[in-house]
Write a protein that binds this DNA or RNA. Structure first.
Lengths: 357, 357
DNA sequence: TTGTATGCGTTATCAC
DNA sequence: GTGATAACGCATACAA
């Protein structure tokens, strides 16, 4: 798409006369014949200030192109209005969509997103954390799963984790002070149960689970829930195929499964992108029909899943709902740090399209 | 994919004893028996400080979990080490890849990405700019095309734009003070010329250009270059089909082109995602073969383009190269604001896959 | 090489 | 409701 047209810089060079362009509160105060404090109050809705005076100050501020300096403000308020996001792979469809939604929601609440790129292998670079710490984000969202909250908490002062847990809250009771923290419970089993039922309804007996990254908690729980759902329906445990959430790995793994391994009646992928890889391997290299010969189910329901070439039947996680819940938790904890731990719950459901039938 | 596992917050509540956890330069100084300034110097490689002393300070800083406060630092240095990015749609494959690469490259240079979401209709919200201004980013990258650099420059003090221009540098000579600014010249015509030649070689006579957003400069230039390349080869001008870079619009537009309009021998899409929409419409709804009945060419070469369902022949813009050039320009201008304007050039080339043949 | 004094732009505290 | 003053945490100029 190649959309962006230009970049703008702030050289702050000597030639540019700082003080004429960038107005300060003092200048606004002088111009409006009020104290510097009055200007500060004018920009703080809660502060008491005569309405007429506030209006005049705001008007003059606009004329002088004045904006309060967040850095200076944060120095004294101890609030940066920055939310750090640590992401290993911004390009991934699900993650980029989540970044998008989170940024939109947080921006509406007055927070800006501070984006950091983590190593591709999901290892948490201590340097990165130190670097980020310098910016003092009010909150941090980590898109990685192989780091224990306690590790991050140790690096970031006063960090209070929000656990994202899956399906079975009790399972996580053993975690250190688990119940002390806020939690987002994702009921993956809801959609997974529907998917397994649908597959069985179409005569599927052997399901292969195309796994995601092994460190991923979401992945191991998906696998567990699929196995459970199948057992409840009297089916044999799924064949587990190693994967890492990427298209290319899914493609090759599917090839191996059907050429070297014993194949399957259906492939349940740990995410949609993996499902795409499986579908393409089945159709374009193995010469099999989807859903005729093999059924495929994905997980996430990213926008690409409705593209006609795939038209994927998948377990949907409602992104908007998920982000709303997360932002609710963040803001709650930010505003009332001492409130009792809260648990938000998120359901999933099967979206039936064309890869099962 | 649903990867992230938890969030960490900084409540900064009263109960948390700020001063014990968050070490300050003074505390490190006291602990190391040096002055506060020495600590500052220890963290600034250029400052002169006895090596042994620096090591000791750094060691103690590590023990105390001390990191310099960027906000306080920026207050005096006038440098925030923040690069603002204004993006209308983070989920778009090309843009998310570009954000990823830019963030990685800038992070290596000590800059953090400050992400802002613009309105979907690409209109530049003045509130957003004011909001962003408060954070004083050292540089701003805008992923929108319908805003004149001068507008943004007016909002942000001392903003010096970097124009991204296309194919024909002279064409932009008329812009206000165009030659005063740094520029990235993208030679779209290179890859476009190759694509048109290939299409003609396979007997294509009528090409439809599936346009992108009309405000997009890249789009209008692509259209112009395709028309030019076709004229040079004695071909009739392309049929112009309206689009907006999205899959759904491309899908419907292709349907209209072949059902209501007169069809075409080939569809040249303004981006890869649009090409996917065209391919799916042709194959799955119009019952046509690609490349048998209709050839399709895209633009960008996003990762999805090699997915077997599409296997798209496309004009590649080297993302890494593009980002390197941009970062080079940014850093150059940041370090030496008064240097002479620079122009970086970027070529494009055709990647031949399976949708032409 | 090192330390002292000053200032960056803002808000919180306390008077009035 | 309003204004003076003191922080916030750091880097810079200058003096030693």
């Amino acid at each position: 798409m190649n959309t962006f047209s230009f970049l703008a810089l702030f050289p702050m060079s000597e030639r540019s006369e700082k003080r004429t362009m960038r107005a300060t509160a003092d200048q606004v105060a002088r111009e409006a014949n009020v104290s510097r404090v009055a200007v500060s109050r004018a920009f703080n809705p809660n502060a008491s200030l005569k309405q007429e005076k506030r209006d005049r100050i705001l008007q003059i501020a606009r004329e002088l192109n004045y904006t309060p300096d967040m850095a200076a403000r944060s120095l004294v308020t101890r609030r940066t209005h920055l939310v750090g996001m640590i992401v290993p792979d911004v390009c991934s469809p699900w993650e980029s969509a989540e970044i998008d939604a989170l940024t939109t929601a947080l921006q509406a609440e007055g927070f800006a997103t501070l984006l950091f790129k983590a190593k591709a292998d999901f290892s948490m670079d201590p340097t990165l954390l130190t670097y980020m710490r310098g910016f003092n984000p009010d909150s941090v969202i980590a898109f990685t799963e192989n780091i224990e909250p306690d590790v991050l908490s140790g690096f970031l002062d006063h960090a209070v984790p929000i656990y994202v847990i899956y399906d079975d809250a009790e399972q996580f009771a053993g975690k250190p002070s688990a119940s002390l923290y806020d939690r987002l419970l994702v009921r993956q089993s809801d959609g997974i149960g529907q998917a397994v039922a649908l597959l069985q309804g179409y005569g599927v007996r052997r399901i292969a689970y195309l796994a995601g990254k092994t460190q991923s908690l979401a992945n191991t729980e998906r696998q567990r829930m699929i196995t459970k759902a199948m057992a409840e329906r009297g089916m044999e445990p799924p064949v587990i195929v190693a994967g890492d959430y990427t298209y290319d790995t899914a493609y090759r793994a599917t090839l191996d499964l059907f050429r070297i391994g014993e194949g399957a009646d259906a492939v349940f992928a740990s995410n949609d992108v993996g499902a795409f890889g499986a579908i393409d391997a089945l159709r374009h290299e193995l010469g099999l029909s989807v859903p005729g010969d093999v059924k495929v189910v994905g997980f996430d329901d990213i926008p690409q899943s409705h593209w006609k070439s795939y038209n994927l039947t998948t377990v949907r996680i409602d992104l908007e709902e998920r982000v709303r819940a997360l932002v609710r938790l963040i803001l709650m904890r930010l505003k009332t740090p001492d409130a009792a731990p809260l648990t938000e719950t998120l359901s999933t459901r099967l979206v039936v399209r064309g890869t099962v039938g």
